[in-house]
Design a protein around this nucleic acid. Structure first.
Lengths: 223, 223
DNA sequence: GGATACAAGCTGGTATACAAGAGCTGTTGA
DNA sequence: TCAACAGCTCTTGTATACCAGCTTGTATCC
């Protein structure tokens, strides 16, 4: 694989296209999409050779991945981390906390236009079984993404985004059966209603329930 | 308290002592305690010389600090980041989300012994003006730390710890006047009660109010 | 005198060389 | 046959050399 360097990429003046960014992105995707399996070991020199770069950017990327919790250093080896069932619970509790609060803030701060758009997304793209899993993932992420955005807290947005980085999230969509989709869709409808009524606590609680529902689905079907 | 967990086996026998960890800890403390002021620039070669190590561990440390949000790379320079007032708001909203949810989980999972200890800490070390600021900071962090611990979610614990690492937090304690202390103490009392009654939503809401109160104190007196 | 172009030197980004520890393997001894 | 030890190898951790680009300062030209 040859890394292509772009001279002006991020738009910010003065930023350099860094090889280590590309390596990081690439390795992260390989983990997220299962190309690199849990417990598989990552050797700096091998990765460097495969990606046609030196160890330095590879090493930086591995450190970033470690700080994301995607890999871990065990006995002087880098290995792709496999989350235990208990850690999956922890992750979903964190999601419930963060996304629940984001819904609360969105109640407070969303403009009427933003609320209309969120309602629109919900009404025009319901979670039904006739949609493909990819479509549902896309729609669902847009729907929740808009709410998080409307919360007006970029730090919270970042934290929520980080939690989407775990590869088991990519396997959830395929597990939803018709009944699960109907439940989710119903919860979305209630959430839209709570947002429109600016009922902060209810929006927070609905989101909390929604996330816990997804968690139990994962727990039942993957663990 | 570790912000970026690179190695899962930190502390186990046979672990390598990395100079890069020491450099990271040292630089972080210099930022937290204000020896490195906001907007001060950090030059890799200078730091390497001052700390008597090579650029490599310094560089690793800077990347970790950047991922913590303590420094930022601007125009090909590393500078200590200065939070805007709006970012302080964001941080406190995140705290409200996380610590509120931790209180909720603590209601569900704390053993009677843990609840008794939390109540004990509250009753034996009230937040009163006769205590020094250092004592109050210590007591307060133990009180809230026990609750977070009782929540039984190590991931949430880590995230909460991260938010304590911003240096303006170190300046808050000195700002509390007698009336503020009384309010905080009253909120602690209510929180203890809610925990003992296992009233999840109330514990969450009280904590939320408590964090928001601290935020408004900072906002009024520091910004 | 001002503006522009060119050059030098800082700076971070990358590559590579060197060091050291942990694990594996093969041999040797009981 | 098994266990223990020695040595080798593989890996990460650290140091240093090299490269490219931004900044800045100066000199020259209009």
């Amino acid at each position: 694989m040859e890394m292509v360097r772009v001279s002006s990429d991020t738009g910010r003046p003065g930023t350099l296209a860094r090889t280590s960014d590309e390596v990081y992105t690439r390795l992260r995707e390989e983990i997220l999409y299962g190309r690199l399996r849990p417990n598989e070991s990552l050797v700096e020199t091998e990765l460097a050779e495969r990606l046609a770069v030196s160890r330095t950017p590879v090493r930086e990327s591995l450190l970033r991945l470690a700080s994301d919790g995607l890999i871990v250093s065990r006995r002087r080896r880098w290995v792709v981390y496999e989350h235990t069932a208990d850690e999956v619970r922890e992750i979903y509790e964190v999601r419930a906390a963060q996304e629940g609060y984001a819904a609360r803030l969105a109640c407070r701060r969303a403009t009427d236009a933003e609320l209309a758009e969120i309602a629109d997304i919900h009404h025009h793209a319901p979670l039904i079984a006739t949609h493909s899993a990819e479509e549902r993932v896309l729609y669902n992420s847009i729907f929740h993404g808009r709410i998080v955005e409307a919360a007006g807290n970029s730090r919270l947005t970042d934290l929520i985004e980080r939690n989407r980085l775990f590869y088991f999230n990519n396997r959830v969509a395929a597990l939803y059966e018709a009944a699960d989709l109907a439940t989710s869709d119903q919860q979305h409808a209630e959430l839209v209603l709570a947002l429109e009524e600016r009922d902060e606590l209810r929006a927070q609680e609905i989101t909390h329930t929604h996330v816990q529902h997804a968690y139990h689905m994962i727990l039942d079907k993957l663990y």
